[in-house]
Each structure stands twice: as structure tokens, then as C-alpha cells.
Amino acid sequence: MLAKLDHILGKCSDLINVVSKYVLGIIVATMFASIILQVALRYLFNTGLSWPEELTTFLMAWMTFLGSAIAVKQMEHISINMFVERLPQRGQLLMRLITKITMLLFVILLVYLGYNLAVNSVNYFSNALRLSLFWPRLSILVGGSIMVLHLVHFIVRDLREVRRT
């Protein structure tokens, strides 16, 4: 039962991660292209656009939360493990489970607050693009939801391991 859940969640989590990386690559490429366009227009044609700065800042928010979700999956967030590593094997396993569950609770709250933030901004419009601030601010909700999926998968996997040892 746990094994099957682990398997399904693992598949979903892997798939989402691949998609996330593609989207992230496109986001960073677009940020880069917009700023280069702005500099080029200014110096080659002595003119400027109103939207590149705004677009790149909105994309940076998406980069942060989507990239953070990928970093959760790939365990790249910076942490201090020196105390946990002193525990015996089973203690380490339990501690890993506790930290994952704590993170999950925190991220679920983050998703909820991110939802509030996005929904409350539906009627706020950006200066240059006249875009509803709902769209950039949706990034917390989306990035957070992906983190939830990865964390749930980790927890199921850890539970399986706790059982086995």
C-alpha cells in the first residue's frame, strides 16, 4: 500500500520536476532577453520601453518560487546538518521525517497565504503592462503547491524506510 503510494507519488513528483525545469529555463531566458533588449534599445536607438523592467521583476518572482520548488525536490536548499548527523541511524531517520512534516505544514500555510495574496491582488494593476498583480503573485501558490507534492512524496518514502528499519 505504502509502496504503491510511494511509486505513484514518485512518478508525479519526477514529472512535475521535469516540467518545472523547462519552464524555469524559459523564464530565465526571457528575463535575460528583456534586459538585453532594453540596454540595446537605449544605446543603439536612444529609446526605452516601459515593460521590460516590470516583466523581468514579475518573472523573477516566478523564478524564485518555481526554482525553490525544484531545489526542494533536489535537496539543494541550504541547511545545517551537523547536529542531526550525530544521532544514531534511526534517530536521523526520525528527525528527517519530523523536519519534512514541519516543512510540509509550513508550506501548506504558505500556499494558503499565497492564495490570499494572489486573490486579493486581482484588482491591482501594474504600471507598465496594466497586468493584474494576480499573475506574478500566483507564483507563491504554484511554487508552494509543487513543494507540497515533493514533500509528501519524501514523507511517504521516509515512512516506508522507518517501517523497514
Partner: peptide, 23 residues
């Protein structure tokens, strides 16, 4: 080149005056 906020209206104002609007 004149600094503006990234507001199309402010940019239009500065451009109308004759400077290059730069957000």
C-alpha cells in the same frame, strides 16, 4: 535621458518634453 517610474504616462510626459524616457 530622463529617469521615469515604469509608468507609460510618466514616460509619455518626459518624451513629450523632448528627453528620452528611461525607466
Amino acid at each position: 535621458r530622463f529617469r521615469t517610474a515604469e509608468s507609460p504616462i510618466e514616460m509619455a510626459y518626459v518624451e513629450a518634453l523632448g528627453a528620452v524616457a528611461t525607466p
